[in-house]
């Protein structure tokens, strides 16, 4: 199985504050990866560095391609909706996607819209938080890429919407693509994760297969994650 993402010696500083320090990470293709960490740990920053939205030092390669423009071509990031005016209608955003992303699959988007029960005639300002997340998921998953980055897709939304989003992830993630889901609530995504990456103390503290964590420590992903922050789990 080849690697879809390789990060070496990545450092990022902003406003004289170190956000990420000496990050090294390699992700294999076809996985669902949970990017876990408390608020402000640097999960979003790490995703933004992968897409080139943030500028750090070090090496980032997606499918062995380091140039930012090549990385953007292979990555679909859930932040793509940021920048649209609130008064923009969803179908206009979809037209925009069709125009700028040659890998946008209209058929897949229609299927996701039906599954997630999205009304595309609405304006962005008329959407509830849960509905907005569904739109983001539908748009992000409608691109045919190697790496999907979903930044906290479940924050502040009801359990029904959460379950639907999780189902859509399982159903529409291409088998050979890798998906990174960042969150600090672990319970609901834990069962679908293949790998767990924990960001702590400005770096990737742990990268391990979810099954290995369960076998090695005899506890669930959530308990493992919490005990790591409480100092209960020691890891090299």
């Amino acid at each position: 199985m080849s690697d879809v993402l390789t990060i070496e010696n990545l450092n990022y500083k902003r406003n004289l504050k170190v956000i990420l320090h000496d990050v090294n990470l390699t992700l294999a293709q076809g996985k669902i990866v949970g990017l876990l960490g408390e608020n402000g740990a640097g999960k979003t920053t790490l995703m933004r560095l992968i897409t080139g939205s943030a500028k750090g030092s070090g090496h980032i390669a997606v499918r062995d391609l380091e140039k930012t423009v090549d990385r953007k071509r292979h990555v679909s990031f859930s932040e793509q909706l940021k920048g649209f005016a609130d008064g923009t209608r969803i179908d206009r955003v979809v037209d925009y996607y069709r125009l700028v992303y040659p890998d946008f699959d209209g058929q897949r988007f229609e299927e996701l819209v039906t599954f997630l029960q999205i009304d595309t005639s609405l304006k962005l300002s008329a959407l509830s938080k849960g509905m907005k997340e569904k739109v983001v998921i539908a748009l992000t998953l409608s691109r045919q890429v190697d790496l999907y980055l979903l930044d906290e897709p479940f924050s502040g939304i009801d359990s029904m919407s959460r379950k639907r989003i999780i189902s859509s992830i399982i159903k529409w993630k291409p088998d050979d693509a890798t998906m990174v889901i960042s969150d600090h609530y672990v319970t609901e995504i834990a069962p679908i994760l293949d790998d767990v990456v924990i960001v702590k103390d400005q770096t990737v503290a742990i990268h391990q297969a979810a099954d290995d964590i369960r076998d090695e420590y005899g506890i669930g992903i959530e308990a493992f994650y919490e005990s790591l922050y409480e100092g209960g789990v020691k890891h090299d």
């Binding site: 897409t51 080139g52 939205s53 423009v69 090549d70 953007k72 071509r73 990031f77 932040e79 793509q80 909706l81 940021k82 920048g83 649209f84 925009y96 700028v100 992303y101």
Partner: peptide, 10 residues
């Protein structure tokens, strides 16, 4: 803007 800068363009 993320919506524009994420376009795969040099």
């Amino acid at each position: 803007s993320d919506s524009l800068r994420l376009i795969p363009l040099s």
